[in-house]
């Protein structure tokens, strides 16, 4: 086992997939000699050359367009969008072309591609470098949406995403790139299937659903309230689409209470989907109203540090919500 950071897990995954399958290539802004703005692809240009680690123009529409075209041609592109905030110019390509390709061609054409997207705030990034975008894409049939929270899952899920025949939106909690460390085995291949969630902490009093960076705050909050006698079960959803309904329902059947946490703003957010699943399928298991704790419905992550703290969830805010729900 080796301890590594989240971004090292991602880099290893890409390295191994480039090595394994010559159809795999990376395309994105500054992914080549520069190694990407976050250094996720550092060293890969030198190792695999300019044909397989391709610097793109400053045009997201074009990065995704290249991805779709080469995927149809039989390649396995990994497209990097520098910040989630910049993905909107490519929204049309992703939603109308990539997501619907298989369906509209009756299965004759598929667009197997990974769209790697660093997302989320708390890094002083302000309006243009902090957004959470999962709700937009989790809504679209034909896409898979994956959010790892640990180096192990980051590596294992990215490798699975590369091998998946569908377009996969691969969301990377960028605040955790170097903050989050974890064990990853060296001597075996790490593959984490897309779909299953993971119970990262077993408990009986309530279930806390989280993903990405929020999963770490959730774990921290759960440990904190454990000292007060509140036994929280934490579920790392890992895949938002298709979501692991079985794990979601089984956990709430056990605890009777659900708290869903995400950094993205509340209204129309991904938490609503989990809440709706519980309302529809777990009603007779509920011992309290399903609760969501999410970012505020304001247009952007503030640049001012105190206001950024106000916007971002943290272990304190999550612990408060846990206490309130546990006392219900």
């Amino acid at each position: 086992m080796t301890e590594m950071t989240l971004i090292e897990g991602l880099r290893q995954a890409m390295d191994e997939e480039l090595e394994r399958d010559e159809r795999v290539f990376i395309v994105g802004q500054d992914v080549g000699p520069r190694g990407g703005v976050f250094r996720a692809t550092q060293g890969l240009y030198e190792k695999y050359g300019e044909d397989r680690v391709v610097d793109s123009p400053l045009a997201e529409l074009s990065i995704i367009g290249i991805g779709i075209g080469t995927a149809l041609y039989g390649m396995r592109p990994i497209c990097e969008i520098q910040f989630a905030d910049f993905i909107y110019p490519a929204f049309n390509q992703i939603v109308s072309e990539a997501a619907r390709m298989c369906y509209r061609s009756g299965g004759e054409w598929i667009a197997p591609m990974v769209i790697r997207v660093p997302y989320g705030g708390g890094i002083g990034g302000g309006l243009y470098h902090s957004q959470s975008i999962e709700a937009f894409f989790a809504h679209v049939p034909g896409l898979k949406v994956v959010v790892p929270s640990t180096p192990y899952d980051a590596k294992g899920l990215l490798k699975s995403a590369v091998r998946d025949p569908n377009p996969v939106i691969f969301l990377e909690p960028k605040k955790g790139y170097r903050l989050i460390r974890g064990e990853v085995p060296e001597d075996e291949e790490v593959l984490v299937p897309i779909g299953p969630g993971r119970i990262s902490r077993e408990g009986t009093d309530l279930t806390l659903f989280a993903y990405g960076m929020m999963h770490h705050y959730a774990m921290e909050a759960a440990e904190r309230v454990a000292q007060e006698g509140i036994d929280v079960e934490v579920v790392d959803l890992r895949t938002l689409k298709p979501v692991d309904r079985e794990t979601v329902l089984a956990s709430v059947a056990k605890t009777g209470k659900a708290l869903i946490v995400h950094e993205d703003n509340l209204t129309g957010g991904y938490g609503a989907e989990i809440a709706a699943i519980l309302a529809e399928e777990a009603f007779a298991d509920l011992d309290a109203p399903v609760r969501r704790l999410a970012g505020p419905d304001v247009p952007a992550m503030p640049f001012s540090h105190p206001l950024q703290d106000w916007f971002m969830l943290d272990a304190d805010k999550i612990a408060d919500a846990i206490r309130e729900l546990a006392a219900y």
């Binding site: 009603f283 011992d287 109203p289 609760r291 999410a294 505020p296 309130e324």
Partner: peptide, 28 residues
């Protein structure tokens, strides 16, 4: 602008009375 359900409404839900038993949740 508040995030999540405002605590006030959450507390109100907890005070729902059904007779002398208080609020009976679906699972109960």
């Amino acid at each position: 602008l508040q995030s999540a359900p405002a605590p006030a409404s959450f507390e109100a839900a907890a005070k729902v009375k059904v007779g002398d038993l208080g609020f009976i949740s679906p699972v109960v």
